[in-house]
Design a protein around this nucleic acid. Structure first.
Lengths: 142, 142
DNA sequence: TCAAATAGTTTGATGATCTAACAATATGAA
DNA sequence: TTCATATTGTTAGATCATCAAACTATTTGA
């Protein structure tokens, strides 16, 4: 259907395919965890960046604080996270992972590292380093 | 928060960041189009692979035919696509983009090519070709 | 020919998300 | 200090995306 007559067209094709594959890989990992997608995302952020308040969590997730309230309610109900009163601002809560939440994060992280390891093995050290350099350049600018 | 003590950890970090950036870029492109996300995805598939029946469209989208019915209903209502009776199977419809739908696809595709062009310019021809090679290897196996 | 399979739709449910209005608290200028 | 304004988080009411299961119409194959 598509011809790759130019470099940018070929790059686009491969970027889109990579993105689609990564997307379906991520969904299947989340599915296997028995968590809702939004819960899994919140756990990912909290595990990666550490405890933070509702506003920052919403910001990192790219959603409103209203939606974040609902997500954190469910995480608390499921025993994955807890709200702790912020010391210096009584309007605010700090959200942190519980032991169970931390385990769920680590489980998810292991899946990611396995995928990265698989790619690194496929490419070899030299090309893996090259890929990292290219991704860094792109991430800085896009 | 993270240390990149191993190659796979550093690769994972950069892959995840790249994926997140691409995700939010894609949402903002769709938002600017005034289409619903599911409609935009269907238009992307139909524009890329051409006309197909409901079942194949659902398969390409990775959703059920029930959900696809709703999406195609809205695409028809909006004038972006139309159902045509399949010649050799009267249970089946072929879904195809209208003129307006094709324009919407091309608009979306232009955005993609602009992003690819931006990346290609950032990297230069040599590194762009390298990136394509690496993505191809990964896409074949993941 | 007719039972089983298939394509698509409908129905009833849940989940993810938004905006707008709200309550509680913090902040800063008069 | 005080009070208007800003900020943090929650709630309410809405839309959209999605699924599974039941259904209709049609095709297929033993």
């Amino acid at each position: 259907m598509e011809d790759h007559s130019t470099l940018k067209e070929e790059l686009n094709e491969n970027l889109v395919e990579f993105f689609d594959r990564f997307t379906s890989w991520e969904s299947s990992v989340i599915e296997s965890s028995n968590l809702k997608i939004s819960d899994a995302h919140a756990i990912e952020i909290l595990g990666h960046y550490g405890r933070m308040n509702m506003k920052d969590l919403a910001g990192r997730l790219g959603i409103t604080t209203g939606t974040t309230t609902i997500t954190v309610d469910r995480l608390e109900k499921g025993g994955f996270a807890q709200r702790v009163r912020a010391e210096h601002d009584r309007r605010s809560y700090i959200i942190e992972l519980t032991e169970e939440g931390t385990q769920a994060y680590e489980e998810h992280h292991r899946h990611h590292l396995n995928l990265a390891a698989e790619i690194a093995e496929l490419l070899g050290d030299e090309e893996t380093r090259t890929l990292i350099v290219l991704l860094k350049k792109i991430n800085e600018r896009i």
